[in-house]
């Protein structure tokens, strides 16, 4: 029974990672850059939701909409101001810029909201009736898992069926050729950032409902772990990000329960290193050999 309980909490934690990882994987697959600031967009989403519920006294779903809108705008602005001018530059330059953006967001949040942690009141309060007698399933867990599955299916449909989604896949395959076919690459990449940041906002609200401490560094660790999840599942692949996120959540919960509570993060990162060494393209990714 205890094992099942850990499994359930692992899956729900993993679903949050998966939602973040979906944003990471979209951006990485299409813009070919590691958006280091993704984790901090999560934090911004959490703060926006916190402010609308506790200062403006608006209902929870309004705060989610608000957070999604603000984060989407934020993501597009970041892309336009900081990343677009570096489209032709090397990956090191883009990565360092992204770190700069991440730092900027963290410190701006610290200036606006202060460094002391805020106590986030969970938006999802309903209790799931006792399940199989002793299993403890909270409303947040259920909502997280459902949201994650819905988002994953939605994104799969979007990238395979819609015009914009097909443009995204074309850009990720070969940006130059896509441009020659009349695809507006800049707009496609902006759109990707918008989707990724909207997902980050949802993830932020869920993350804060799950563990209610909100501070400027809230997003960085889940951000890094979600990237790990995206790499684990094969970066650029949407089902891969989902699978990687859920597996990572389970690994973390199991490691915390059975191996060592102090070293759970380390175990997750060791898994990342092992995956990268054994299957550099991740579980569902496809390996692209380097060409001269």
């Amino acid at each position: 029974m205890a094992f099942l309980q850990y499994l359930i909490s692992g899956i729900s934690l993993g679903s949050i990672y998966a939602i973040i990882a979906l944003g990471y994987t979209m951006v990485y697959g299409i813009a070919k850059m590691l958006n280091f600031a993704h984790g901090d967009v999560i934090m911004v989403g959490g703060y926006i939701s916190f402010c609308t519920t506790s200062y403006l006294d608006l209902p929870g779903w309004v705060s989610v909409v608000f957070a999604v809108v603000v984060c989407t705008v934020l993501g597009v602005v970041i892309e336009g101001l900081a990343y677009r001018p570096l489209r032709q530059a090397g990956s090191l330059a883009v990565l360092i810029t992204a770190i700069g953006v991440s730092y900027l967001l963290q410190n701006a949040a610290q200036l606006i909201w202060g460094a002391t942690p805020k106590n986030f009141t969970s938006l999802i309060n309903f209790q799931v009736p006792e399940f199989l007698g002793r299993l403890n399933v909270s409303g947040v867990m259920l909502v997280t898992v459902c949201a994650c599955v819905v988002i994953m299916l939605g994104l799969t449909w979007f990238t395979s069926q819609t015009k914009m989604g097909k443009a995204m896949r074309a850009c990720s395959e070969d940006r130059g050729a896509a441009q020659l076919m009349g695809i507006n690459v800049n707009r496609t990449i902006s759109m990707t950032f918008a989707i990724g940041s909207a997902l980050a906002a949802i993830a932020g609200v869920l993350l804060c409902s799950y563990s209610p401490v909100l501070q400027p560094t809230t997003g960085s660790m889940p951000g890094i772990k979600a990237f790990t999840a995206a790499v684990f599942g094969g970066i650029g692949s949407i089902p891969g990000a989902f699978l990687g996120g859920v597996l990572l959540g389970i690994i973390e919960a199991m490691a915390r329960a059975y191996l060592s509570s102090n070293l759970a993060n380390s175990i997750v990162f060791v898994v990342l290193i092992l995956v990268l060494l054994i299957r550099p393209a991740g579980l569902l990714g496809k390996y692209v050999p380097e060409k001269v």
């Binding site: 590691l34 990565l95 790499v231 990162f269 990342l272 290193i273 550099p280």
Partner: peptide, 10 residues
């Protein structure tokens, strides 16, 4: 590249 950066961070 990016993988190396994230692993050094880890």
């Amino acid at each position: 590249g990016d993988y190396l950066a994230i692993v050094t961070l880890a």
